[in-house]
Design a protein around this nucleic acid. Structure first.
Length: 208
DNA sequence: GCTGCGATTGACT
DNA sequence: GTCAATCGCAGCT
């Protein structure tokens, strides 16, 4: 199966996100290979229009990868313990990205289980952005890796999905202007798929 | 240098 | 349903 066409990833993140649904991301390490069929993603625009984007305030050491070529892996560390994975989209310098929020393990199930010992069911192995990264064995050190080259990663398009199977809605944990997450309905998922994460509205963290 | 908080998860009531 | 864990980044002094 051919790799995902890089030119298709150079469009705006909102256009790329639905194309990634059903695509299969494979990560091969010394332990073996795990492949995930993507069922849930979120688009982030690097432009000033999107306050939820890590690139919204400009280029920093952390988000540097987002300003590079489309088709590379952008990883970030959050909440002091979790790693999340994104596919860089858009032309270089535009800093768009698509967060991989959930998927179905289609290969390497045993290895994924050893990496996700707290998951009780197989559908929970990659349901949620930090879970997906963990199941694939993605760490911060993988940031910047090319998903379309000859390296440890491969990203292949899946079967084209009929429009009625693609659902959209507000992004998770991200508030838009005035706290309105629905201002950016940039979350895309495969309708009725059990590996789509549960929606949680953006909440302000309590003061401690 | 100091402080507040986040593109979350899992454990617990 | 509620809540703690845990640390790098961004913004401010």
């Amino acid at each position: 199966m051919p790799a995902f066409d890089r030119a298709r990833l150079e469009a705006h993140a909102v256009e790329v996100a639905p194309l990634l649904l059903g695509a299969v991301l494979t990560h091969t390490t010394a332990e073996g290979a795990v492949a995930v069929r993507l069922t849930e993603v979120e688009a982030y625009s690097g432009l000033g229009e999107d306050p939820g984007s890590h690139a919204h305030r400009g280029r920093t050491a952390r988000n540097d990868v987002m300003f590079g070529d489309a088709g590379r892996l952008y990883t970030y560390f959050t909440y002091g313990m979790h790693t999340c994975a994104n596919v860089v989209t858009g032309a270089p310098g535009t800093a768009g990205g698509v967060l991989l929020r959930g998927g179905e393990i289609v290969s390497g199930l045993e290895l994924a289980r050893t990496r996700r010992t707290t998951a009780r069911k197989d559908v929970d192995l990659a349901r949620g952005p930090a879970r997906l990264a963990s199941a694939l064995g993605i760490t911060l050190a993988d940031g910047g890796a090319d998903l379309l080259g000859e390296g440890a990663f491969s990203l292949r398009p899946g079967e084209p999905l009929p429009a009625e199977r693609i659902a959209t809605g507000p992004r998770v944990g991200v508030a838009g202007p005035g706290g309105d997450a629905t201002a950016f309905p940039w979350r895309f998922w495969i309708a009725d798929d059990p590996t789509v994460s549960q929606y949680r509205p953006a909440v302000r963290r309590r003061r401690g």
